[in-house]
Design a binder for these strands. Structure first.
Length: 282
DNA sequence: ATTGGTTCCTGCTGGC
DNA sequence: TGCCAGCAGGAACCAA
């Protein structure tokens, strides 16, 4: 599930329970996730204090008191579930791969059925040059992301804009859902050549991306308050999807009849589903 | 160098 | 109702 807004929601849920806490017990239940876990993974985490939790693109970064950073990616199906002190223990499931227990009695589990997720331990001075982080494009909600910057990165790209926005080197944090949603709000067809998104179009796309991600984070945050755990669930934003997974439905921006014009379209681009309105998006 | 297709894995779902 | 093919929100890897 996790794209940038879901990862942001997860770290906001983890912070109050983990920042400042010491890892009293670490259990590693398998040797590999997507990649092999580093040598002595559990032993290196054991006894460390988590100083700060941040995010870069879809990566969770937990800064430890020995200068190492626990790097974590949720992949497609990764979830963090948190059980507070005093809550009833939950049986360990087959996909609970990593279990962290803090000195405050909170228990965090990393559960990932498909095991496309990953964890690594990196010295903080090597973080920027880490092979998974080094090539990432700008944060879409950061100051470095702007119309001219996006236009520059799209220059010369022959692929459709849909594929370019999924490329984490262009902008880091979008996935299949938020690309469809952002292109819809920008009024840009997912089939348009990436290099033709310049000037005002690039400006509109940047605004759309920021707005979609911001609204999704707000919706994720509201579900967190209800469930009081960093569950990795989508929150409420799925009810706000304009086009994603809405094939045949009425376009929220058009007044036309979906029964007559077919409504929202679903196409496949580079083996992934894309949803869009053929009228509003050019 | 880009680009597009394939692949890793398990769990759901939708169509029969 | 039950079964199973096909699809799923990521991204590294490979071949062209």
């Amino acid at each position: 599930m996790p794209e940038l807004p879901e990862v942001e929601t997860v770290i906001r849920g983890l912070r109050p329970h983990l920042e400042g806490a010491r890892l009293a017990r670490v259990e590693q239940r398998r040797a590999d996730l997507r990649f092999p876990l580093p040598e002595r993974f559990a032993a290196r985490l054991q006894g460390r204090r988590i100083e700060r939790i941040d995010r870069r693109a879809k990566y969770i970064l937990a800064h430890l008191d020995d200068g190492a950073v626990l790097l974590c990616h949720l992949g497609m199906s990764g979830r963090m579930t948190l059980t507070g002190p005093g809550q009833a223990p939950v049986a360990i499931g087959p996909h609970d791969h990593i279990i962290l227990v803090t000195d405050r009695g909170a228990e965090l589990r990393f559960n990932d059925a498909r095991r496309f997720g990953l964890m690594d331990l990196v010295a903080s001075e090597d973080l920027e040059s880490h092979r998974l982080l080094a090539g990432l494009g700008p944060e879409p909600l950061g100051n470095a992301f702007s119309g001219p910057e996006l236009a520059r990165r799209l220059r010369g790209k022959r692929s459709p804009i849909k594929a370019a926005l999924l490329d984490q080197r262009i902008v880091a944090g979008l996935g299949n859902i938020y690309v469809s949603e952002s292109l819809f709000f920008a009024g840009i067809s997912p089939r348009r050549s990436a290099h033709s998104v310049q000037g005002d179009r690039a400006e509109r796309l940047v605004m759309a991306i920021r707005s979609v991600l911001t609204r999704a984070i707000e919706a994720g945050g509201s579900s967190l308050r209800d469930y009081v755990q960093a569950s990795g669930e989508l929150g409420y934003f799925q009810h706000e999807w304009a086009v994603y997974d809405r094939e045949g439905a009425a376009c929220p921006g058009c007044t036309c009849d979906p029964a007559r014009d077919g409504g929202i379209r679903r196409i496949v681009q580079s083996n992934r589903a894309t949803y869009y309105c053929g009228r509003r998006q050019r």
